[in-house]
Amino acid sequence: MIVYIDMDDVLCNFTEAANQDLKLNPAIQFPQSQYGFYTKLRPLPGAINAVNALLDSDKYTPYILTAPSVKNPLCYTEKRIWVEQHLGFEMVNRLIISPNKSLLKGQYLIDDNHTGRCQSEFEGKLLHFGTSLYPDWASIRKYLDV
């Protein structure tokens, strides 16, 4: 079964980094537009172990499905660097960057948003990360049994 995993605020802590940048420089309208923003993001607790468990599973084939930031054209490269640094080269080959998440076919989409990037039109099941049903990676792993 194919599992797509969003990056920002699912694998890595986008909000924390954006808030820190805004505190340091309130004049920055879009922190994610700054050079190096995506490469400095910290992984969320349990995210790396969960992806590795999915990779080791005979049941699932995980991919990273992330939307590009139109505020930072370097995000394509920076997100790819982040994936290699934190998840290894195997996941680089499983990185998909698309503004429309409904274009891909699979069984699961793990995403912190249910709209904005056509998540609601995804044909599989949306596991809405950060909600009461799926608040963290432990709950996702329990649901997927990995």
Rank of each mutant, 00 (worst) to 15 (best):
G106Y: 06
V10N: 03
G46D: 06
K71I: 11
E16P: 08
T115A: 02
S139H: 13
G106R: 09
N52I: 08
A17S: 12
P68I: 00
N52V: 05
H128W: 12
V10A: 05
M1D: 02
D21E: 14
T115L: 08
Q29C: 08
R141D: 08
A50G: 10
D136A: 03
H86G: 07
G36K: 03
Y63V: 05
N19Q: 14
Y38Q: 01
I81K: 10
G116V: 02
S120E: 15
Q29E: 15
Q119T: 07
K59T: 12
W137I: 00
Q34S: 07
T39P: 00
P68N: 03
P26G: 03
D8F: 04
I48K: 08
D58A: 12
V83R: 03
D136S: 13
L41N: 02
W137S: 09
H128L: 14
S57T: 07
V83T: 12
T115Y: 12
V83P: 01
E84S: 13
V70R: 15
I140F: 14
V3N: 06
Y108L: 00
L44D: 04
T66N: 05
V70S: 13
D145G: 04
Y35A: 13
I2E: 14
L127K: 11
K105R: 15
P45A: 14
L74E: 14
E90I: 13
L144A: 04
K23S: 09
L109H: 04
F14C: 07
L41K: 05
T39D: 07
D112A: 01
P31K: 11
R94L: 00
L103P: 06
M91R: 00
P62K: 03
R117W: 06
C75R: 09
I48S: 02
P135I: 07
S102R: 10
L87W: 02
E84K: 10
G88P: 03
V10T: 11
T115P: 07
L144S: 00
D6Y: 00
Q119N: 12
F37Q: 09
K79F: 04
N100V: 06
K79Q: 00
Y60C: 06
M1W: 10
T39S: 12
A50P: 00
Q29M: 14
P73M: 11
T77Q: 15
N93L: 11
N13K: 09
L22A: 12
P43T: 01
N100H: 14
G116A: 10
G124Q: 08
N100R: 15
N49M: 13
R80D: 10
S57G: 01
G116Y: 13
K40P: 05
N13E: 05
E123C: 12
R94F: 03
E121H: 11
M1R: 10
G106F: 02
S69H: 10
P68D: 05
K71V: 07
M1T: 03
T61W: 09
L144C: 01
L41M: 07
H86R: 04
Y134G: 03
I140A: 02
A18H: 13
A138C: 12
D111L: 04
Q119H: 13
H128M: 02
E84N: 14
L44Y: 07
P45H: 12
G46N: 06
Y143S: 08
G36S: 06
G88Y: 04
